Simulated scan of single mutants.
Amino acid sequence: MAGGRPSEFNKIWNNEDGLLRIAGWARDGLTNEQIAENMGIGLSTLYEWQKRYPEFSDALKTSKEVVDLHVENALLKRALGYEYVECTYEPDKETGEMRITKRITKQVVPDTTAQIFWLKNRKPEDWRDKQQIEHSGEVNIAQTLKAAQERAKT
């Protein structure tokens, strides 16, 4: 048999079900370390398989991108505020089937914490906490200390 024995990846993970499980873990937000642990392999093996098997690499990358986009959209929605419709259901007296008896449009106000987080990450030059202040000129410590001592004597 040319190429030696088949790898564990080909035996267990290189099929529709295996790749779907891997993609699901990535989509659920698991780290590479957690995915490797779920697969029963070391992290170095996971990285090696990513290089060797494009279908494996794609399953991880694409699924992580999808969940990242969902989180970004949810953060933006929360930062800007939104409306939703809340429905109340009750059984119909004649048929017993559940039906909507009340619809209320509710508003979620914009969340300033989400806004700050968004701006600090999207526009760090304008919104970072740490300010860069440049000083030009000289500071004469000896003279400043002498003046402070003079003031302390009086």
Rank of each mutant, 00 (worst) to 15 (best):
T95I: 00
I35Y: 01
E125Q: 12
E86G: 01
L119P: 02
M98I: 00
Q131D: 15
K102A: 09
N10F: 04
P110V: 01
Q115E: 09
T62E: 14
N32A: 04
G40H: 07
R99Q: 12
Y47I: 15
H135D: 14
S136T: 14
Y89M: 10
D126N: 09
I100K: 00
G42A: 06
P124T: 06
R128P: 01
E48T: 14
V67G: 01
L76W: 08
L76T: 14
V109I: 09
E94S: 05
F9E: 15
N10E: 15
G96F: 03
G4P: 05
A148K: 14
F56S: 05
L46Q: 07
F117K: 02
N73K: 14
G137K: 14
Q132P: 01
I133D: 09
V109T: 12
T45K: 03
G3Y: 10
E55H: 11
R151S: 08
V109C: 03
G96P: 02
E16D: 15
W49K: 05
D68S: 10
I100S: 01
D129I: 00
Q149G: 04
H135K: 02
F56Y: 07
M39R: 07
Y82A: 01
R78C: 03
L19H: 08
I22E: 01
E150H: 10
R52E: 13
Y89T: 00
A114I: 00
V85I: 14
V108H: 12
G24A: 07
V71E: 14
N38K: 14
K102H: 13
I104R: 09
W118T: 15
Q131N: 07
A26G: 01
K93N: 06
S57Y: 10
R5C: 09
R27S: 03
D129W: 12
R122F: 05
G81W: 06
S57C: 11
H70K: 11
D92T: 00
L119E: 13
I35G: 00
K130H: 03
R122S: 13
Y84G: 00
V67S: 07
R128W: 02
I12W: 09
Y53Q: 11
K146G: 04
K93F: 04
E97D: 13
I41D: 00
R103D: 11
N73A: 11
E97R: 04
N15L: 09
P91W: 10
F117Q: 08
G3L: 13
E37P: 01
K106I: 09
E65R: 06
K61F: 12
K123T: 11
L75M: 11
E86A: 04
E72W: 06
N73S: 13
K120F: 08
D28T: 14
W118M: 06
E86S: 04
L19I: 06
E97V: 00
G81K: 01
Y47S: 07
E97P: 00
E138L: 07
W13F: 12
Y82D: 02
D111S: 01
L75Y: 03
G18L: 12
R5N: 15
S7Y: 03
E8H: 05
E90D: 08
I104H: 03
S57I: 03
A74H: 13
P110T: 02
Q131Y: 05
L30W: 09
Y89K: 10
G4I: 10
K123G: 02
E65D: 13
